[in-house]
């Protein structure tokens, strides 16, 4: 059997001004083919104006086991949300 093509993650910018968003993955032998395939697989209905492809092997992800250590500290800091501070009704533009 031939060598398996590497996996690429595909990110699409849907409109000018919005961030690229992960839409899925695909196999391709190189970056150029990955962009071509992404065009065919993920933008058949005008879904995008720009494509990024990244080799899946090059993505570093946080581990589900570290979820607590990474994200729990934010739980106790509700004052980071503007709604934490009640404002008097009479005061405007805040």
């Amino acid at each position: 059997m031939s060598k398996q093509w590497p996996l690429w993650e595909v990110f699409i910018r849907s409109q000018h001004g919005l961030a690229h968003k992960h839409v899925g993955s695909l196999h391709a032998p190189d970056a150029e083919m990955a962009v071509n395939n992404a065009r065919d697989v993920y933008t058949r209905r005008n879904e995008g104006v720009s494509i990024w492809v990244v080799r899946a092997a090059d993505i570093v992800a946080s581990s589900p086991a570290d979820k607590g250590a990474l994200f729990d500290p934010a739980n106790s800091k509700v004052y980071r949300h503007p709604t934490f501070f009640p404002m008097p009704e009479e005061v405007k533009n805040l």
Partner: peptide
Amino acid sequence: LAKIQDEAGHGLYLYSAAETLGVSRD
């Protein structure tokens, strides 16, 4: 032709989903 091309796309989305479970498309 557009419909058949969609079917190929659907197959690819699904193979990718299966691959996240630790099996290769090949």
